[in-house]
Design a protein around this nucleic acid. Structure first.
Length: 358
DNA sequence: GTATGCTTTCGGC
DNA sequence: TTACGGCCGAAAGCATAC
């Protein structure tokens, strides 16, 4: 089953201050550039009725809500993380195996403890919803199905506070009428390309020739589209380890092509990334930079070392070098700049021995 | 031909 | 009319090694 916590950030804010429950609540990421620059992270369902959506500029959300008393709040990520961690413990306790996806979603494999009986699984889903509601005062929506793809789509059918069960014999009928964009991995771009092939629903996709799909979308996505649309998915529910990369990005006060200006910001970002690296006792092998340009296009550059290091000055220096090269050849100004490290390894001791040797 | 590793882009939340 | 975050993993595309 897939458990999805409803409009998570905004619901937490409603719980923290119940007096806002009957108003539109919009949780925002303020970029700090101007008073209201930034985007909507999550909105409650009242705000959604006015057309407010995740990823929408805050200014636009305010426009949609100009005639109604509403509440705009900044994200409080550490607080949401605490609550998420507690809820994930509850969920984990109800699963044979468990896989958290993001801060507000998790897959629970319950086939062992239910013996594959969907009636038992439905009862377990009700129990999970009630535990989350009683212990944390929050609602969630759950989808139950024979695999992850079906469970995920099922969870989206009825929300908030929904529960949708799709038994194996119901899968085909359940999927066939839904639009292709309900499948994970099918965003705007893939949906448009499919539309061009005359494929609008998952049923259309299920009946489409596999070889043609592979020609159009490559081996991986082609095979996935074919299998998923037919309700076939063997992906195991698997515990996810720690993140494989650490990154920070920030919006500049003004768009620029000046290395001195970007370095002021990236030096700080390097320090924060490095702090998280040290906390986890790791070293990194690759350094990447990302720039979001004035026109919102995204550019990245990266460099990989021969061996791992945990040196902040190496990180700062590499980031500066990468930006120096990048900015020199760039025509548009940068709006946001970021730093990412990857190739993370637990190799502090081995590395120290090596550097001493040379 | 196949495996592996690196750089960049895409897209989910 | 425009407006615009901050993460993360997956995979495409390419080069090189075997």
């Amino acid at each position: 089953m897939l458990v999805d916590l409803d409009y998570f950030y905004a619901q937490i804010e409603e719980r923290r201050n119940p007096s806002i429950r009957d108003k539109p609540v919009v949780v925002c990421v303020y970029s700090g550039r101007t008073e209201d620059s930034g985007v909507v992270s999550t909105a409650n369902y009242i705000a959604r009725r006015y057309g407010v959506r995740s990823g929408m500029p805050i200014v636009l959300a305010k426009k949609r809500l100009k005639d109604v008393e509403s509440v705009f709040l900044p994200v409080d990520h550490d607080y949401y993380r605490e609550i998420s961690d507690r809820i994930m413990m509850i969920l984990r306790g109800n699963a044979d195996s468990f896989e958290q996806v993001g801060i507000d979603e998790a897959y629970l494999d319950v086939s062992q403890r239910t013996g594959g009986d969907f009636e038992k699984a439905a009862a377990l889903a009700q129990l999970v919803k009630s535990e989350v509601r009683v212990q944390e005062g929050l609602t969630c929506s759950i989808g139950v199905g024979p695999n992850k793809v079906v469970a995920k789509i099922a969870a989206d059918i009825r929300k908030p506070d929904g529960l949708t069960i799709v038994r194996p014999e119901e899968v085909k009928g359940f999927l066939s009428k839904l639009p292709v964009n309900r499948l994970i991995g099918v965003g705007k771009k893939t949906a448009e390309r499919l539309e061009g092939l005359g494929v609008r629903t998952i049923g259309d996709l299920a009946g489409y020739d596999l070889q043609r799909l592979i020609e159009c979308f490559g081996n991986s996505l082609g095979a996935y589209l074919h299998n998923a649309s037919n309700g076939i998915d063997d992906e195991p529910v698997q515990e996810r380890g720690e993140a494989e990369s650490i990154s920070r990005i920030a919006t500049l006060k003004e768009d620029t092509l000046d290395l001195g200006v970007t370095t002021q910001t990236t030096d700080r970002l390097c320090q924060e990334v490095h702090e998280r690296l040290v906390q986890r006792g790791l070293s990194f092998k690759s350094v990447g930079i990302v720039a979001v340009m004035k026109d919102l296009s995204i550019r990245t550059r990266s460099k990989t070392f021969e061996g791992p290091t945990d040196d902040l000055e190496v990180l700062r220096g590499t980031v500066k070098e990468l930006f120096e090269k990048f900015l020199a050849e760039s025509k548009v100004e940068a709006r946001r700049v970021g730093v990412r490290i990857s190739g993370l390894v637990k190799e502090k001791e081995a590395q120290k021995r090596l550097t001493r040797f040379f």
